[in-house]
Nucleic acid binder design. Structure first.
Lengths: 334, 334
DNA sequence: CCGCTCGATGTAATCGATTTCAGGGATAGC
DNA sequence: GCTATCCCTGAAATCGATTACATCGAGCGG
């Protein structure tokens, strides 16, 4: 690899001039600039990032941690992150934590070591290694949550109004005449699960239907969707509708319904959450709460850039719009 | 951020000693080591990667480019990459090229600039910016393909035997008595599509069934699966089986069959490719060719590490095992 | 014709680590 | 008691860029 020294020598100028040609060309006389550029292309010179980073103390990288990259919801959010980051001249360091706190810590350390300028985390836990940083820097700590956080937590984040969204999904079911409804939540450690569950209870309460609710706790996975659906139906065969807190669990629910010989939506209506790419291609096409996944990622990047630029005086909560997408998996109660 | 200087001062030693404590502790006397470690924890010191990189000329990062991260096949491969990279002490720089050559180039430049020690690309095109590097360094260029390449191309890669796998899928259909079979390939620019297509013809030829083949070209997406299935059925309503070169296209095919009022597998059998997580939860559960996705990613990393370590004298082609998974979407020809 | 300003360029310090080489002290061997 | 050896530690060079400051020459006003 050619260094800036090589270019300087080849063009007969100092390294300072070469550096200026590359970053502030308006300070350099045109003939000199051309001479340098010729040398640059001749040598195929590209600045060494490590040296640049060391000098400027900026990495131009954003670290993104995700509990499971193979989950279509997360991968779609990451797509938005990657897009926005790239547009702003940043690249993305990916961390798949596999839901393991230990891995989360490892990535937290990376931020502390300044291997990235900022962190977007898509899980619900902030690594312990970063609580110091959060406490010391508060809203100016370069840490943002990409989808999971509650409005009241001390990190900037982008998210939808999960409580309202869940309430709307329930309203949809109540509107169709369902009164015995099974709900499969995500892990209750996760604020989004709690928010959505709160929305479920709000809607049920408003209709005086609390007694008809059956709550089960899943973990957002297909398998837990199967398992919890079977459990719910065994516990109460009179259920006519299911609301799953993720589309993946809804896929599992569809499986379970088939196993039980129940038809969707004729016997049991089903609502999912997220509107991943596959939701509309299921059989039946899934009614679900759509989240603007790419946009969540983009907003998270924007929040982070604001922090970099010192534009954030306080934690910011960006609430994006959700939308109940009614397809073929919900119908009038039998 | 505390620097190594701060630690040295606080522990009353030189920076050299601090560095040694952290990287070659066996060279340091125990009392000194303890004193330094105390200072390290007290100050919360973590070495600055940029400085380390500059000095060692290694970034400990692997760049992974992917045509579409939200594709479950790719995201699963990436999972394997991330896992193996992490285990080897590397982190992953993610590049979603969105199938755009321009973005691919941008990431190629990153490798040239040494922002990563190596590149794993999951698409089928090597960026132009890297052909120089490949030519200059040959098998020692830190570039590996993660799934798409043909055995005869000049890059190390991990993949399955696509030709054979496709032939087996066809054999399965012939074995069930199908003779009029529609095939939906991926873009023929991609070697895997061509290899699989070759396998299709091999199998058909062996059975003397070439005349019964109907070939359509898709792009691996759900939408193209819908579109090409409709086109195939319109062109030849007597088809009794479909073979799609990706599970996503097979999902689209299922949609299209429903639109046409055809039942799967009673009227039309369907075979997919990849065995993404959702394949077995479709209705009907999809018969498909399983690729060891995570393992592909892990192998790609291993190949790259071999190159880093100078263990690769020549391009290496690792062929992993595929497996035809027969589920409910295929049945005897009507 | 002198001094001042301004544009263009060079000099050199700096970022924070790693690593080579040299030196100092203790121990052991003779 | 003197030297050789072995540990341990420190001084300083180094990686490749950026950038504050210095310098130099040209042009211009008085």
């Amino acid at each position: 690899m050619a260094t800036i020294q090589d270019v300087a020598r080849s063009a007969g100028v100092s390294t300072a001039t070469v550096s200026r040609v590359l970053s502030t060309p308006e300070l350099v006389a045109e003939p000199t600039r051309l001479r340098v550029m010729t040398a640059v292309t001749a040598l195929g010179y590209a600045p060494n990032m490590a040296a640049k980073m060391l000098r400027t103390l900026r990495t131009e990288k954003i670290l993104v941690t995700v509990p499971d990259i193979s989950n279509p919801f997360f991968s779609q959010v990451i797509r938005g992150v990657e897009q926005a980051a790239q547009d702003a001249g940043y690249s993305v360091l990916l961390g798949d934590t596999r839901h393991e706190p230990e891995r989360e810590e490892r990535y937290g350390e990376m931020l502390r070591r300044k291997e990235a300028d900022g962190l977007i985390f898509l899980g619900h836990r902030l690594p312990d290694s970063l609580t110091d940083m959060m406490q010391a820097q508060g809203p100016r700590a370069p840490i943002v949550n990409g989808c999971e956080f509650s409005p009241d937590l001390a990190v900037s984040s982008a998210h939808i109004d999960n409580e309202r969204a869940a309430a709307e999904a329930m309203e949809h079911l109540y509107g169709l005449g369902h009164s015995r409804i099974g709900v499969i939540t995500g892990p209750l450690a996760s604020p989004i699960s709690r928010d959505r569950l709160a929305g479920v209870h709000t809607a049920a309460g408003a209709r005086g239907q609390d007694a008809g609710l059956r709550i089960a706790t899943g973990d957002f996975s297909i398998e837990s969707g199967v398992r919890e659906t079977l459990a719910l139906l065994d516990g109460d065969p009179s259920l006519t509708a299911l609301f799953c807190f993720s589309d993946e669990m809804a896929m599992g629910a569809l499986d379970a319904l088939r196993q039980k010989g129940l038809r969707c939506p004729q016997d049991v209506s089903l609502v999912g959450f997220d509107d991943i790419r596959f939701a509309k291609h299921l059989n039946p096409a899934l009614t679900t709460v759509a989240q603007p996944m790419e946009q969540l990622g983009q907003e998270a990047v924007r929040l982070l850039l604001d922090i970099f630029a010192g534009r954030s005086q306080d934690f910011q909560q960006v609430t994006l719009h959700h939308r109940l997408v009614v397809r073929d998996s919900t119908a009038r109660a039998p």
